Each structure stands twice: as structure tokens, then as C-alpha cells.
Amino acid sequence: MKLFRSTAAALALTTGLLALPAHAEVAQQNTSGDPLYTANAPGAFSMLGDLLIARPLLIGATAIGAVAFVVSLPFTALGGNVKEAGQSLVADPAREAFARCLGCTSSVKNEY
């Protein structure tokens, strides 16, 4: 009788563990309606990493880019590419830091 119980318990545990990925996939579906968020469908670990690591680094990159933009402003004004320098040094990192959904890989919206 002990062999039957241990075999039944092992079978039940194995079946339960095999069903976990299917359950996790159903629980992770997005219903927000945002096509960018639906396309990326970030998980909890990617959201946590984005919040604790990527966002502070992007905010720092925005601040450093703003300082670099101000320092390079006389040279970019002479070259006539102030808009491009501001876009790449300040606006792009700021958009990725503040306008991107949590856990998404890019804030660029793809046309579907």
C-alpha cells in the first residue's frame, strides 16, 4: 500500500508541475489593449529589471546627455545640427526612460 501511495503522489506531483507552464501562459496574457504592450508582453522579471536597473541608467544617460548637449552646443550650432544633437543626446534617452511601458524593449511604436 505504501508503494501505491508514493507512486500516486509522484504521478500527481509530476502532472502538476507539467501543467504549470500552461497555467503561467494563460495568466500572462495582456488585456490592456495597447498594441505595443501586447506585442512585447513583458514578464515580471523583465519589469523588475527594467524598474531597478534600466530606468535609473536611462535617467542618468539623459542627464549626462543634457550636459554633453550644452557643452557641444556652440559646435553643433556652427555645424547646423542642433536638432539632431538634441534628439540623440537628450530626447531619445528621455523617451526610453519615461515614455516606454515597464518591461518593454523599445518605445518606438510599430505600425501594424
Rank of each mutant, 00 (worst) to 15 (best):
22 A>W: 06
100 R>W: 03
59 I>N: 01
111 E>M: 10
25 E>S: 10
49 G>K: 02
17 L>M: 11
65 G>C: 06
15 T>D: 08
103 G>P: 00
46 S>G: 10
72 S>P: 01
109 K>P: 00
95 R>L: 12
106 S>N: 06
32 S>C: 15
75 F>Y: 10
28 Q>K: 12
82 V>D: 00
108 V>M: 09
100 R>H: 01
13 L>A: 15
109 K>W: 07
89 L>Y: 00
63 A>E: 08
87 Q>C: 11
12 A>L: 15
10 A>Q: 12
51 L>T: 11
21 P>A: 11
85 A>K: 00
45 F>M: 10
77 A>N: 05
96 E>Q: 15
51 L>S: 08
44 A>Y: 04
36 L>W: 05
96 E>P: 01
39 A>S: 09
2 K>F: 13
36 L>E: 03
102 L>F: 07
17 L>V: 08
30 N>M: 10
70 V>Y: 01
5 R>G: 02
15 T>F: 15
77 A>H: 04
90 V>S: 03
2 K>C: 08
107 S>I: 08
77 A>V: 11
6 S>W: 15
12 A>R: 06
30 N>T: 12
19 A>T: 07
58 L>F: 12
21 P>R: 09
99 A>N: 13
47 M>K: 15
28 Q>H: 12
27 A>S: 11
48 L>G: 02
75 F>H: 06
18 L>N: 07
72 S>Y: 05
54 A>E: 07
32 S>K: 06
61 A>K: 02
80 G>A: 04
40 N>W: 08
97 A>H: 03
64 I>R: 11
2 K>D: 09
39 A>N: 08
10 A>Y: 07
55 R>G: 00
8 A>M: 14
68 A>D: 04
46 S>Y: 03
52 L>R: 05
98 F>N: 05
48 L>Y: 04
32 S>Y: 04
51 L>E: 05
90 V>F: 03
82 V>Y: 02
7 T>H: 08
13 L>F: 14
66 A>W: 03
109 K>M: 10
57 L>V: 11
91 A>F: 13
107 S>F: 13
37 Y>W: 09
53 I>W: 05
57 L>M: 13
81 N>I: 13
16 G>N: 09
47 M>A: 09
46 S>L: 06
